[in-house]
């Protein structure tokens, strides 16, 4: 459970922490798009330096970012190794049947590795420096134009907020029920996959029942307090777009320009 701490937000007052969640959300989404512009060592180096600077600005220990890479490490290594072994072109250092190590292959391997790490660092940066609820606010704001297309944006945002609010509660509940069932002799995570799956029946039934009861109580409480849908609701947390947010957007525009200039 400690491996994937839910909502990895780390409180802080760094420059990145204080940015508007909308700016951070837009910037990280945009970063994932412009990373595809990089196709030589100059562009990857630029993106690497840019990301490291951003990481530095968060005032968060580097190990937290490394932890983001860990769950993906097998997929990354696997992809990189295949890339190295099956790419032709450039100087050939080693060949055995279809397997070969070429200079082009090694270069591609390094690029793919960089791409993985850069995307993971940026995504981690967003979740480390932004409260989950601020993220929902930002998502709601950015989706707002869709209300014209009859998309229930307020309802989606409310569902996201409620879900985020209840994840830790239900995680506790899941743990509690698992421990209660363990005390009755259920083995979780032991035996083959069939046995492991079978063990979740005595977990799922009480979990669903208690969650649905919780939902029912919450719905009643909301209606008793006069909830009537998103229209005209006011907000406790207000978002403020500041100069620093505009600076971030401009920086990304410059970065995009530089990438287009430097790429092959």
């Amino acid at each position: 459970m400690d491996k994937l701490i839910f909502g990895r937000y780390i409180p802080g007052t760094s420059w990145i922490h204080r940015l508007d969640p909308r700016a951070k959300l837009l910037a990280t989404m945009f970063f994932i798009i412009i990373i595809f512009l990089a196709n030589n060592w100059q562009t990857y180096l630029l993106l690497l330096l840019f990301t490291l600077l951003a990481v530095k600005l968060t005032d968060i220990k580097f190990s937290f970012f490394i932890n983001g890479v860990k769950p993906m490490i097998w997929l990354i290594l696997f992809t990189v190794v295949l890339q190295v072994l099956f790419t032709s072109g450039g100087e050939t250092y080693f060949q055995w049947g279809p397997i070969m190590v070429t200079s082009q292959g090694l270069l591609n391997g390094v690029f793919i590795f960089c791409r993985f790490v850069l995307i993971i660092f940026m995504s981690t940066l967003l979740t480390l420096t932004t409260m989950p609820l601020s993220l929902t606010d930002a998502i709601e704001y950015l989706l707002r134009p869709l209300t014209k297309l009859k998309v229930p944006v307020y309802e989606i945002a409310l569902m996201l907020s409620i879900a985020l609010r209840f994840v830790p509660t239900l995680m506790d509940e899941t743990e509690k029920i698992m421990n209660a069932q363990r005390a009755r002799g259920v083995d979780f995570g032991e035996g083959n996959i069939f046995q492991q799956m079978k063990a979740i029946v005595p977990l799922l039934i009480p979990l669903f029942v208690s969650s649905f009861n919780r939902a029912e109580e919450l719905a009643t409480a909301m209606e008793a307090r006069g909830y009537q849908g998103g229209e005209g609701r006011t907000k406790y947390r207000q978002l403020h777009w500041q100069t620093s947010d505009t600076i971030v957007m401009l920086t990304f525009a410059v970065l995009t320009g530089a990438l287009i200039f430097l790429r092959n």
Partner: peptide
């Protein structure tokens, strides 16, 4: 409201 809240809780349960 119930439809909304039940789905939100199902989502939270999925994540948990």
């Amino acid at each position: 409201t119930k439809y909304l809240v039940t789905n939100a809780i199902v989502a939270a349960l999925y994540v948990a």
